[in-house]
């Protein structure tokens, strides 16, 4: 089974890292670095800050990984460090909700879609992710971890260190609240 193979491969790689294998550590960074970066960037919309916190996160992990035993918690551990670092930094900078700009939803389009569809998707993205910025911090985190990091609810519960039921309930309420916020915007739903 692919999942079991993935888990076994991750376990073996982390064991090599713990033994000081630098190539194994590079593999971990290549696998998880872009995902951590994308999540952080989606939250702060600042490339430099996202990279800085990604670096800080991996620096922390590598200094503590010597005695680490992989029991399926590596990914939640990694992302929790990243989220906490970002939260602390955002608090320090006094920043909270960040407006979504065309830089995010305008630059990544390929030429496959017609211009009209691209513009429609851009408007939808700006509206949706702008509305998410009005949700409570914990609800925002759940939606970002689910849609940007593609994590399961179980993994999200691990990252946020909350019971699975709490995460599911918060997600349910977050969608309802998001619909309320978007209620005034015709045509979105």
């Amino acid at each position: 089974m692919a999942l079991e193979e993935d888990k076994a491969r991750l376990q073996a790689t982390l064991r090599r890292v713990a033994e000081g294998d630098e190539e194994a550590w590079r593999e971990i960074i290549e696998s998880y670095g872009p995902r951590v970066y994308a999540l952080l960037f989606s939250r702060c919309r600042n490339a430099e800050l996202a990279e800085e916190i990604t670096q800080s996160t991996f620096c922390t992990v590598v200094t503590k990984i010597e005695g680490y035993q992989e029991l399926g918690k590596f990914e939640p551990w990694l992302f929790r460090i990243a989220m906490n670092r970002l939260r602390d930094e955002m608090r320090r900078r006094g920043r909270h909700a960040i407006p979504v700009s065309h830089e995010v939803f305008g630059g990544g389009q390929t030429g496959d879609q017609p211009e009209g569809a691209q513009q429609e998707n851009r408007d939808l993205g700006e509206a949706l992710w702008g509305a998410i910025g009005e949700l409570a911090e914990a609800d925002q985190q759940i939606l970002h971890l689910r849609h940007v990091s593609e994590m399961s609810f179980k993994q999200i519960a691990g990252v946020l260190d909350q019971p699975l039921g709490t995460v599911l309930a918060r997600h349910f309420r977050a969608l309802k609240r998001l619909r309320e916020i978007l209620g005034d915007q015709d045509g979105l739903l």
Binding site: D6, M151, F153
Partner: peptide, 9 residues
Amino acid sequence: SREGNEGHL
């Protein structure tokens, strides 16, 4: 609450 998916990528 999909089980698994804690592995690589």
